[in-house]
Simulated scan of single mutants.
Amino acid sequence: MTISKKERAKGALMGAFIGEALGVGPHWYYDLEEMRAEYGEWIDDYTEPKSDRYHGELEAGEISQPGIILKMMAEHLIENDGYDQDAFCKMMDQDFLPEISGKAMAGPGGYTSQSMRHLWRARVEKELPWDQVAGNADTTESIERNIAQAIFYADDLESLSLNITANTALIQSDNLIGSLTVAFSSVLAFLIQGESLDPEISTKLMQAVDQGKLPFHKVTSGDLNQPPKNNMVKESDLYGEGMFASPDALLSPSYMARAAQDKEIVIEPAWKASIVYGMPCAIYHMLPAVYYLSARFKDDFEAGVLHALNGGGQNQVRTMLTGALIGAQVGFSKIPRRFIKGLQQKDELLALSDKLAKKV
Rank of each mutant, 00 (worst) to 15 (best):
S252G: 08
P253A: 06
M286V: 15
L170K: 07
E75S: 02
G107Q: 00
D237C: 02
W42P: 00
G242E: 12
A166V: 06
Q172H: 12
I177A: 06
N315Q: 01
V276D: 08
Y83S: 05
S113H: 06
E99R: 15
D131I: 00
L293T: 09
G135S: 12
K90L: 09
S101T: 13
G242W: 12
N225H: 15
F190M: 12
L157Y: 14
G56D: 07
L13A: 07
A154F: 03
L160K: 11
E75N: 09
V317K: 05
A169S: 13
G327I: 06
A257Q: 05
L306H: 01
N80Y: 15
W42M: 00
A245V: 00
S185N: 14
L309S: 02
P288I: 02
G311F: 04
I69N: 11
S252N: 13
W271G: 00
E75I: 05
S246K: 07
V330T: 13
D237L: 01
E264H: 15
S51V: 10
Q207C: 02
E33A: 15
E48R: 14
V317Y: 05
M116W: 15
M72V: 10
P288V: 01
L238P: 15
I335L: 05
L180I: 08
S113K: 02
M206H: 13
E264M: 12
L22K: 08
E127N: 13
V266Y: 02
R121Y: 07
L97P: 15
Y153M: 06
G278T: 03
V219C: 00
I164A: 02
E141S: 07
T220P: 06
F184Q: 05
L250N: 09
Q261M: 14
L170H: 04
T322N: 01
S159N: 14
A183Q: 08
V182W: 09
G11E: 05
Q85A: 08
A148K: 11
D81Q: 13
F301T: 04
A189C: 09
G222A: 09
P336Q: 04
D86T: 05
Q211A: 11
K234L: 13
L352H: 04
Y29M: 03
A106V: 00
F17C: 02
E127R: 10
S64A: 12
I326H: 04
A60Q: 06
Y153W: 05
K272C: 09
L162T: 10
D210S: 07
L191A: 04
Q345W: 11
T112C: 10
A183M: 07
Y83N: 14
A16K: 01
G107A: 01
L214F: 08
A282F: 11
Y54G: 07
Y291G: 02
T112V: 07
Q193I: 00
Y39T: 00
A150W: 05
F96Y: 14
T181H: 04
E195H: 15
K50R: 13
E7H: 01
M1Q: 04
W42S: 00
M320R: 09
G56S: 07
I143N: 00
A183H: 03
G109V: 11
P199N: 00
V290F: 10
